Amino acid sequence: MIQSDATFDGTFPFTPHFSAAPGFRMHYVDEGPRHGEVVLCLHGEPTWGYLFRHLVPALSATHRVVVPDHMGFGKSATPAQRSYWLQDHVDNLEALVHALDLTNITLVMHDFGGPVGMGFATRHPDRIRRIISANGPTPFGQSDLFERITANARVSPWFQWIAKAEANGELEPVLGQLGFNILSTLKLNGFENNAIITDAWLSAYGAPFARPADCLGAIGWAKGFATGVHTFATPDPVADRLIRSRPALAIWGEADRTLHAEHFLPLFSAIFPAAPVRRLAGVGHYCFEDAPEEIGNLIAEFIRQT
């Protein structure tokens, strides 16, 4: 876990907040007016709220921007006695949202933040105002979800490595040293702009994983895919109808080698057939690193229009 006041040379200057509601010390950023509409940003693997460091100031003048770190990531605790499956992260998010009483939420989801956000939306569709997927899958009870995940895994270096490493016993030892191999892990998943790599950037992404005991979140997400224990929720008819009625936007870096557009954008369009899809050429999996200004403008304009 990172020190609560760490700013990484001023690149993450936000006041830290913590909640014990999920049963562990969960960190979140909470910037902007408390009366403003809520923008809830959900990160993926193996990132944390640092991923959204450019988006927060772009929106917080007019919106309440809340950015939690999932259990085992960023400044949140990594309890040894907990499991780290998808359904656990959805439970944790639910507890935090209830503790903060967040409503009128615009979800901004990246990577496995997509399944976490959509899992929460199946339970609380009345709290959701908009859905924004940025290189983040949007599973919502689709019958072809397993086939799309399987097809993507056949062409994704990250998912190929997960399957191989779990089979030969290397997954936990390798990801248990994530603080030392964070750059290769991030690069395997994919960003195109190498100019972002600075000492502060490397420290920000490596510091949460200083010891094997700090890596349970990253291990759990990967292992859950390799062993099939993640549970993707299916909405009931009321939730299905409400979420499909919400304004939605997909933003997808086309150079993503981990979550390929051809496999995951159809999941989004199946729920939101009239929703705009913005495909960004030359932008990789970590789209908020490759094109932060462009994506910030797209999100801000979408919120204004809807």
Rank of each mutant, 00 (worst) to 15 (best):
F14R: 13
D88C: 10
G141R: 05
R34E: 14
M71R: 15
T15R: 13
G224Q: 07
Q177D: 14
N181R: 12
A281K: 15
G224F: 06
G74S: 07
H260P: 00
H124I: 01
E289Q: 15
C287Y: 09
W221H: 12
D9V: 08
G23S: 05
Q81G: 07
T234A: 10
W201Y: 15
S60D: 13
G253L: 04
I251N: 05
P46K: 12
G169K: 05
K75E: 10
C215R: 06
P13V: 01
N193A: 03
A99C: 02
G224P: 07
L259F: 11
H230M: 01
T7I: 09
I132R: 00
I303M: 11
H285D: 15
A99H: 12
S156G: 03
G119L: 01
P292K: 09
T62D: 15
T106D: 12
I182K: 00
G296E: 12
F302D: 12
A20E: 14
A210C: 04
P57C: 04
F12C: 02
T47P: 14
M71I: 11
G141E: 02
G228E: 04
E37K: 12
A275S: 07
G74K: 09
F14K: 13
T227C: 12
R279A: 14
F232P: 04
N193Y: 09
D240K: 09
